[in-house]
Amino acid sequence: MDIITVKNLKKYYNIGEHNEVKAIDDVSFEVEKGEFLAIVGPSGSGKSTLLHMLGCLDTPTKGEVIIDSSKIHELNEDELSNIRFTKLGFIFQTFNLIPGVSAVDNVLMPLMPYGISSAKRIYSHKLLKKFGIGRRANHDPGELSGGEKQRVAVARSLINNPKIILADEPTGQLDSKTGREIIRLMRELNSKNKITFIMVTHDETLLQYVKRVIRLKDGKIISDDKNGKMLDL
């Protein structure tokens, strides 16, 4: 069953009067529920632009993105926020934790405007404990290592039980060992919790750990390999 459908997606930018950049150029694919997918490509290939449109952060010039039966282009800003809140989780390359707020409050951050139940508070502590940073729950992000920050970011992406997690270069700021640990964590969540993962990366060494790889070049899909090695970490 498809959880994401992308149909003839285009994202063009106008730079100057007669200079059109085709960041995404007529891309179509489907993502099944529970898939672990990597989008790779050189700089400027459009992989981050594609991820942002899948995450309802950016709007396409043309084409459709359907997430869990919701046609994204038909939704207003509040409805898009609701999709991001209920169905999606984000992991960023630079972690993007809120400074001055403890690790556990960062995990709870998506829920803050809506109210935080005690069950969710307990769950946030459980997540941090599960990721091996339970003791760092009350620490400020500034006091955490890169790996710890990314674990907090992963915990944050899980707090609202999303169906899909979008990860933009999640290992980009980490050393290779820590990077692999983060991928292992994501794989575990993918296999146990059946969460769909879409990861953008330029690190070719990570591709051996995923099942499906979409390669982009100049905004177009040049290959879609669904038979990845899925090596153990």
Partner: peptide
């Protein structure tokens, strides 16, 4: 600004950021 982008990405509405 970037923080607000992150907050919006994780589900905050415009009115939540404004508030």
């Amino acid at each position: 600004i970037q923080e607000f982008g992150v907050l919006k990405a994780i589900g905050w509405r415009n009115k939540d950021v404004m508030t």
